[in-house]
Amino acid sequence: MSNEKIVEIRKLSKTIGKKQIIKNLNLDLHKGEITGFLGPNGAGKTTTIRMMVGLMKPTHGDILIGGKSIRTDFEGSIEKVGVIVENPEMYKFMSGYKNLVHFARMHKGVTKARIDEVIQQVGMQNRIKEKVGSYSLGMRQRLGLAQALLNNPEFLILDEPTNGLDPAGIREFRMYLRKVARENDVAIFVSSHLLSEIELLCDRIAIIQNGELIDIKNVNEHQQSRYYIEAKPSEQAKQVLEEIGFTVHPHENGYLIDTEAEHIPGAIKLLTAAGVDLYAVQPHRTTLEDQFLEMTGGGEIAQAHTK
C-alpha cells in the first residue's frame, strides 16, 4: 500500500433547485486502499459519485483525480478512472466482445491484447461472443467489471456494485476487488447501503448523511475492548464487579464491562467465589451496523431525494 493520494474531493457542493444535496464535502482517497461510502438512502451517495465521474456538475468545489481537475480538465482527470455506476447497462443487441471494443475505442492505448487480457481476468472467454441480452445478471456484472478495467485504472468507482448479485457472486466480486486493489495498487471507492458488505470489503469507511460527511474511520481500528457477562443472581454479580472497580452497563440479560482480556480470569474467580452462577462471558464487539445506526440516528431514512 503506497498511501499515495489519488483522489481529492474539495469543498464539494451540489444544489438542485433550492435543495442543497451535498454540503461542503471533503475526502481524500489513497492508492491501494478500498474506501466504502456508506449512508442511508437519499443521503447523497449517488449524487457524489456521479459528480466524481462527470455525469453531474458540482455547484461548488472541485474533484481532483491524479491532480487534474474534473471541471477544467475532464479528459485528463477521467483518463485513469474505471466506473461501474449501479447495474452496468450494456448494449444488449451487441456481443460482450463488441461492447468491450466499443469502450476500448474511447480510451487511449487500449489494445486488442488488453481486451483479451481483461476477458481472461473476469473469466468470460467462453461467452464473450454472445449477445449481452442473453447474459445473466452475474455475467453482466463481470462484463461491467471488465469494461471498467480496460484502461488499467488507478482509481475504480463502484456505485452499489453488488445490487442483485447472489451471495456467491458477491463473494467472488469482493475477492476480485481486493485482488485488484492489492496487486495493481488501485484506489477503490465503493458505495453501498449494505453494511456487512462494506465491512467485509473495505479498509476505510466514509459515512454520509443528509449530504454531509459525518465520519471517516478505519475498519480494523483498535476498538475499545468490552466483555459481556451474564450471571445469576444478577444484582449480586453487579455488586461484585463494581467492587473490583469495573464500570458496569446493563446489556440484554447481563452486563457490559470495559476491560482488557487479562482481567477476565480474575473477575471470573471472584464472581464464582461470591457464589454467583456464570452463564456467559464473551467479548462484545459492536458491529458496524450498531455504530452506523448510532451515528445516523437509528437509521432514520433521510428525506428521500428523488433519484
Partner: peptide
Amino acid sequence: SQGTIKMLLTRPVK
C-alpha cells in the same frame, strides 16, 4: 432509455 449513457459519458471524451 437503455441506461448506456452512463457508460458512454464516463469516458475520457468530452
